[in-house]
Nucleic acid binder design. Sequence first.
DNA 1: CTGAAAGCGCTTACAG
DNA 2: CTGAAAGCGCTTACAG
Lengths: 344, 344
Amino acid sequence: MGITIKDIAQIAGVSTSTVSLIMSGKGYVSGDTREKVQKIIDEYNYRPLRSARQLASNKTGNIGFIISDVHLSRSEAFYSRILLGAELEARNYDAYLLLSTVRADLDVPRNIPRFLKGRDIDGVIVAGSVPHDLIKYILKENIPMVLIDFKVENLKIDTVFMDNRSGIHQAVEHLVKQNIRQIGFIGGSNYHPSIRERFEGYQTGMEKNGLGNIARNKDYTYLIDDETSAEIGAKGISSVLKSASELEAVICVNDTTALGCLQQLREQRKRIPEDIAVIGFDDNYYASVMHPPLSSIYVPKVEMGMAAMKLLMERIENRKQLCQTRVIPVELVVRESSMQNHII
Amino acid sequence: MGITIKDIAQIAGVSTSTVSLIMSGKGYVSGDTREKVQKIIDEYNYRPLRSARQLASNKTGNIGFIISDVHLSRSEAFYSRILLGAELEARNYDAYLLLSTVRADLDVPRNIPRFLKGRDIDGVIVAGSVPHDLIKYILKENIPMVLIDFKVENLKIDTVFMDNRSGIHQAVEHLVKQNIRQIGFIGGSNYHPSIRERFEGYQTGMEKNGLGNIARNKDYTYLIDDETSAEIGAKGISSVLKSASELEAVICVNDTTALGCLQQLREQRKRIPEDIAVIGFDDNYYASVMHPPLSSIYVPKVEMGMAAMKLLMERIENRKQLCQTRVIPVELVVRESSMQNHII
DNA sequence: CTGAAAGCGCTTACAG
DNA sequence: CTGAAAGCGCTTACAG
């Protein structure tokens, strides 16, 4: 029913090879022929059938996007924005994005995303943490892959990351500039690479400002190696408040944690930011509408998805190139929750 | 490099037709042959190449998932949960989900999702509102389609919806049982079908409880036909509070709106729920961690995605069947924000 | 610069 | 119940 390359070739009075060459932009075709054929292609609105193209060229034009089910449906919309970026960028390569969610208890290799088994993709983007076995499987199968906001030790894989350390450094400096020095940290240290980096950022940032003794004092930190949640924030601030009575400010590993922290502080009748300043990380929608509005480190999520897609395409083009890590810059957004001395 | 149907046929000593028949589960194959061949298929872990299958059968095995970019990246994770459900269900049909976001200012048909033009999908799921022109295009092209949480007037399309009216009715009754009668509504009336239904639910629910006069009194409602936001909630409650001084409770069109409402009430030093009870809709993660925790109507989002995929597959099977609407039940979750008289 | 032809890996009437 | 064969719509060496 659709129009085929044969039809176009016949109408244009050329061979199908020529039409194919023109469609793909490869090989040499004279300007005249090209123009003539292109006109007919446009006129008939011809689009090559993907499956035929795939079969003949042994390329699928599909990119797999793998994400854990809990991450995709988390409220921060963090990963769905990354997904959005990947999809946007895919268009520039005329690629389709195949989505597959995986569970944490994935049974590799029995239960892996189908497109991996069927080889229906040219490469995959993995966003956030997934079972290590899955990563190893993809590597073993030699399928081009880019990780976003995830790392697996000792494995050479292209990665897109945000500059977690710089983000926390910005937060620390913003506080120090206000003469706030008793700064705590709530979150985790090891559950996820980004979480680890944020904690390290806290340590090094404090160190740089001559506050290493505080950062090393465990009274000032609350670390739980688990999926982040508002609950951790609430428990964390209670705990730190008890152990470090001098506390003036707290940096939370992300906005969700900060939310719980804010609530707990309110229940304890602490004024924010007068008694305790609070800073989050991610800068999601809720940060700006929290009470008070939350200072947070903005992460350009869409850009991360786009960067990953670009990197993957480079990898597919040139499978031998050295592994790269793209670090996406982040930026502190100051709001009421951390403006203790009202100097922005 | 991969193993093909030919290899399997040769090893098993049968024709490729027989292998194909077994793989697809169609036609008649004797038990003996079936078993023998199946064993070899399993042993070699053979999986037919999708593109070849597509080309030969003229079916793609792909389902398109279309969603507006703003919806996908909204913080409620409402639509990403729906997407999750669709993907989960797709596995049961061995279908792949192709994602495409569209912008509100989509230029139809120039800029429509590529898989629509290329006919690379067997059908599409459209989640949330998208430009009407796009819906009309899909209809005109006779591509099987299911809408989720969206309607286009006068067009016959399979649809999955949540029971918005029932949700609001539950909220009204929950309040009335506590002898709360001065109930307002904040949100919109016309921007989106769900919003309209929720407003209608407010009107009919109030009517049923003998409170029609209040529902008809414009002092008790604040309606803005725009994308929902916390800001609308804040402005809404200020406005209603001014015009309806007797106000005891307010139902918000969704949780995001309720969030803004909560904040504004706090700023005005109103106690929640003692002075004003507040109820949201959607029951997203933030509802339970708001301050105070927000009563809200739970919407089973994953189930909606699954239902849509099932419905679409039915439609693809039988293009002539009558259009169906699947209404997914919802349920009020009572939390502190609406427990004025402490009788749950 | 262009064309003829083989081939990609399946499915599906059609015979038998 | 099973096999031989055509065909799906492309791409890609290979000639010329």
